[in-house]
Amino acid sequence: MNLLAELSYWQQTSIRVGAGLLAVILVAGTLVMLHLFKLVSFMQSRLGPMEAGPFGSLQLLAEVGKHLQKEDIVPRKADKIVFAAAPFVVLASTFLLVVVLPGGPDAWFIQNDLGIYLALAVSSVSVIGILMAGWGSANKYSLLGGLRATGQLIAYELPLILAVVGVVIQAGTMNLQGIVYQQANGEIFGWDGIGNPYILTQFVAFFLFLTAMQAELTQTPFDMPIAESELVSGYMTEYSGMRFLLFFIAEFATAGVFSAIAAVLFLGGWYVPGIDPDDNIMNVLGPLVMFVKVIGLTFVVFWVRFSFPRFREDQLQKLAWKFLIPLALLNIVVTAIFKVWI
């Protein structure tokens, strides 16, 4: 039944660490290639990169090579250490996020009852990296971008967490693996053909989560902090070469990880209807299913990104505090009532 159980502890750990790295890099790469290069091109009626590899499929590697070659410029007045450390803090937050994600009955990185709570806690660390970048650059655009990003991230972290609370109440656990099982073993009015993906009962939370996620990722229409036309890329203004690449990877990897979390919370995670969730095959199939769901959700993210205009700063805050948070609280109340009495 268990592929990994025969291995010793350090072997398991190595595999899990390796898989975690892969999950971040691979997903980020796919997203950039598929969505950023190709999807946007098609939406704008052009072909996108076509030169490198068949249909431009190796374009990403070329880009990475380009960034690695570039000179690593540090502004003279910058706070050198803070400036240098900032991208790593952001990326570390992303890597820590991925550890709680399950990919199959035994294909997990760590098993923890705190699950989603840990993920949310870790995701909030990236704010510090952004502030470090903004402040350390000694550039007023960067500082403004950093402050905007912080204000936005703090504001949208609340609906994000509160949206999750609804799911947690319904599932009765914060363990992401447990949430997957709850959905897999659930039933809709007695019919258990597809389990009970929480998108059906927690559609409000799903909407909230996606909206807040869009803002957390600072994607359009919530891209005030890095608004290129106003702030010249905000806190990333002064970054170049390798460090810019790190920010770039972190941005897309975080999009992938958040989508994965959304997939677990609302779409049943690695579970596929029709296959026993404890079947060994799921350890191979599960990550693939997750990958498909992640690509599907990120498609929505990028679709919105390329379709909507940017919010104004006050509209952005108003949306969070006056609409999303009350809605999230209402959702919690309703969920709690259903949980207790029905």
């Binding site: 709570y117 949310l120 806690a121 870790v122 909030s124 660390v125 704010v127 510090i128 502030l131 912080t150 703090i154 972290e157």
Partner: peptide
């Protein structure tokens, strides 16, 4: 601790 202190207080 991480969520409140690092994620909120220090920020």
């Amino acid at each position: 601790q991480v969520l409140v202190y690092i994620g909120a207080v220090v920020v």
